[in-house]
Amino acid sequence: MSGSELLDRYHRQNRRRAALVGAMAVFALIAVLVDLTTGPSGLPLSETIRTLTGAEVPRGTSVIVWQVRLPVAVMALLVGAALALAGAEMQTVLENPLAEPFTLGVSAAAALGAGVAIVLGLTIPFLPPAWGITANAFLFSLGALGLLQLMGRLRGGGPEVLILFGIALNFTAAAFLSLLQFVASAEDLQQLVIWTMGSLQAVNWGSVTILALVIAVTVPFALMASWKLTALRLGEEQARGFGVDVTALRRWALLRVSLLAATAVSMVGVIGFIGLAGPHIARMLVGEDHRFLLPASIFTGALLMSAASTLSKLLITGTLLPVGLVTSLIGLPVFFWLILRGRPGR
């Protein structure tokens, strides 16, 4: 094959990847629509679409769609996108396919923060009570990642060190959480346990807007770092030889990961699996050119989370399962299957 033929094939491959990314985005949107049509008061798709497009509908329908279902559906989409993007960036900068915000202590710290608010009633003063748990979870998880970065920097910031600190943080936060659970009243304990299972029910347009803003701010920077992140996949020495300031790349990527993960987890609680599986599935679809991998992760995560949100309403008729439970229950077997089916990444 001649050079120009090979280049043609390279360009064709990239167009196919762009199309795949687009397809994932479309699937994610379809998943949101399906999510919108499921719920205790069954609304047909046509009715939902008529409501969304502003057609004349009964007031009850309008409230259900706009105030109840849409915030939840959009939140699912955004949480999935945020967690998968955070996972993708973290796996690359820590050079470890198992790295994700949740394996490195973010969720445990968030749960601890929530526990402090629920059990001890300690939170930021003058905050509306509804936001106390969220604020605590956010601060604790951001603090955990800040601590991680700080410790990492003291020890040179290599990926192994960061991962070890992350695991230590995870266990430390979990230990303190157990302590809180031990002293909590039965009522508080129940609230805390349910919070840690991850739920989309407490969301409203306010929290949706905040997460949307965080995503809108971090995504452009992540995309701008695409080539640098791809270079890091060839090893730190290679990347530095190419002129990439790997230390700065790591620091900024982890800051983006912190913001995304802390915001998402503080609003909906612990959602496992998405940050790990989203990027893995995306990698199988489009490879590791991060210009494609990052958007593909975003849409895969969004799709997975929307599907989980829908399933959480359907799995047990009449019962709404915590969505974090669904991602783990349904997600993990799927993930195992993907691993066993073939080596991820090819």
Binding site: L6, Y10, W227, K228, T230, A231, R233, L234, G235, E237, Q238, A239, G241, F242, G243, V244, R283, G287, E288, D289, G345, R346
Partner: peptide
Amino acid sequence: FMPQSLPSGASLNVLETVITALRASG
């Protein structure tokens, strides 16, 4: 600089890695 240690498997093809070497620094 061509380092002594070679990268372990990333899911990138050869052409992509060379383009990355060219574009990574910006």
